[in-house]
Simulated assay, not measured.
Amino acid sequence: MSQRTAVITGASSGIGAASARALAADGWHVILGARRVDRLEALAAELGGTAVALDVTDQESVDAFAAQIGACDLLVNNAGGALGTTPVADADVDEWQRMYDVNVLGTLRVTKAMLPSLIASGDGQVVTIGSIAAREPYKGGAGYNAAKHAVAALSRVLRIEMLGQPVRVCQIDPGMVETEFSLVRFAGDADRAAKVYEGMTPLAAEDIAETVRWVASRPAHVNIDQILLMPTAQASAAVVHREL
């Protein structure tokens, strides 16, 4: 059996990079997409994978990315992120626009571009990294909640539309994961980002990557539709036990 190919967006760090390592360890050839090409190339060299520049918010970049890829058996839509925690009354429309563009339209652009290859594979999978924010609104999260709820809707509709086609669709919704996520959300404020995880043990990128690996390893007749996973100390989006 020929080596299967996984395409991973947002692969330069965090969950994307960890997923690449987990899938490569399972024998997949990994094609890594992100804007930070220097990081991608280092990871690709480590894993024997392929690094390709990708900006999911730019249609020309997505088209160029897809044109360089032949076969694709698995797409991991990982690119995304949050910006700020302002309430609706003070919302920065530009921040909302950027979150929608990377999370929702970015997922759409790449999924649409890769679907022909996924169908042609005869057993394709789309695994999208969502968030607990896709299931439960929380104070200060309106923009990110709105974007991730839209991603969840996209995944659910795609699942319905792919019935009868050889493509499985899964959305993995993590709770608190310590990556660069909060650092980006708070515009590089390391102290503020660290406080998000103060007094508790969050999930690690590797925990999500192991879930991606497991989903991707299921036989063709099994579709893992949705997964919600949180650290033990977290019971919902805003309910967290902290040892302070």
Rank of each mutant, 00 (worst) to 15 (best):
A237F: 10
L228M: 14
V196I: 11
V196G: 02
D94G: 07
I119S: 04
V126C: 02
V169Y: 00
R4P: 12
V212M: 10
V37C: 04
S236F: 03
C170S: 15
T232V: 10
R4W: 08
L158K: 14
H29F: 02
A82W: 03
I208L: 11
A67I: 04
A233R: 02
R213V: 14
K148N: 01
G84Q: 09
G124I: 11
K148Q: 04
E206P: 06
N78R: 09
Q165N: 12
I15G: 02
I224G: 01
E180G: 13
V62G: 06
V37S: 03
V157H: 00
L54V: 12
A233F: 01
I69Q: 10
Q226A: 10
P231M: 12
A82V: 04
L32D: 07
A51Y: 05
G27L: 03
L115V: 13
I129S: 00
G124T: 14
Q3P: 00
A238G: 06
P116S: 04
S117C: 02
A79R: 02
K139R: 15
A204E: 14
A134W: 01
R159C: 08
A42F: 02
R21E: 15
I31V: 15
V88A: 13
S131A: 01
D38M: 03
L228P: 06
V184E: 12
M230E: 13
V215I: 10
N223A: 07
V126R: 06
V110Y: 00
H29Q: 14
A152Q: 15
G130H: 03
Y138D: 11
G175M: 09
P202Y: 09
A204N: 04
S12A: 09
